Amino acid sequence: MQQLYQAADRIEAQLLCDLLDRHGVEARVFGDYLSGAAGELPADIYPSIWVIEDRDLPRAQTLLKGWLDDKRARAEARSWVCHGCGELVDGSFDLCWRCGKEH
């Protein structure tokens, strides 16, 4: 078992763990409830994702890189105007929240 990534929060950790699971990589999130004790523990209490089988680590690292690249691209994406209804949609979305039309 090897550590793959330290997430910013429980949601990010679970999203990544779910992605790995969909691609056949068995992984677990550890430390996802430590933030409840933040007043008594050191500041380094972020959840981490661990790959169970060492042989799956290279594949998990490839999936992680793609996931992080996609996350970064979505954060940098510009807002767009929906051609279906004219609504201004945040750049991180591929579908219009109002009418469901694709970007």
Rank of each mutant, 00 (worst) to 15 (best):
S79C: 11
A37V: 01
L57I: 12
I49P: 00
E87C: 12
D44K: 07
G36T: 01
S92Q: 15
L41N: 06
S35A: 03
Y5C: 04
L95E: 05
A8Y: 03
I45E: 00
A38N: 03
R28C: 01
G100M: 10
Q2D: 14
R74F: 03
A8N: 14
R74C: 03
L15P: 00
L34M: 14
P42L: 07
S48L: 10
F93S: 04
H83F: 08
D69Q: 14
A38I: 04
R10N: 01
G84A: 06
R10A: 12
A75G: 11
K71M: 10
E87N: 14
I52R: 11
H23P: 04
R98P: 00
L4E: 05
I49S: 00
D18P: 00
A75L: 14
D18E: 14
K71H: 12
L19T: 12
L34R: 03
L88F: 02
G66A: 06
L64E: 02
I11D: 11
S79V: 08
Y5Q: 05
R98F: 05
E26P: 05
V25S: 08
I11L: 12
L15H: 14
C82V: 10
V51P: 05
C96E: 05
H103P: 15
S92F: 12
C82L: 08
L88C: 08
D32N: 12
G31A: 09
R74P: 04
R98T: 08
D21N: 12
H23A: 06
Q3N: 12
D18N: 13
P58Q: 02
E40M: 10
K65M: 04
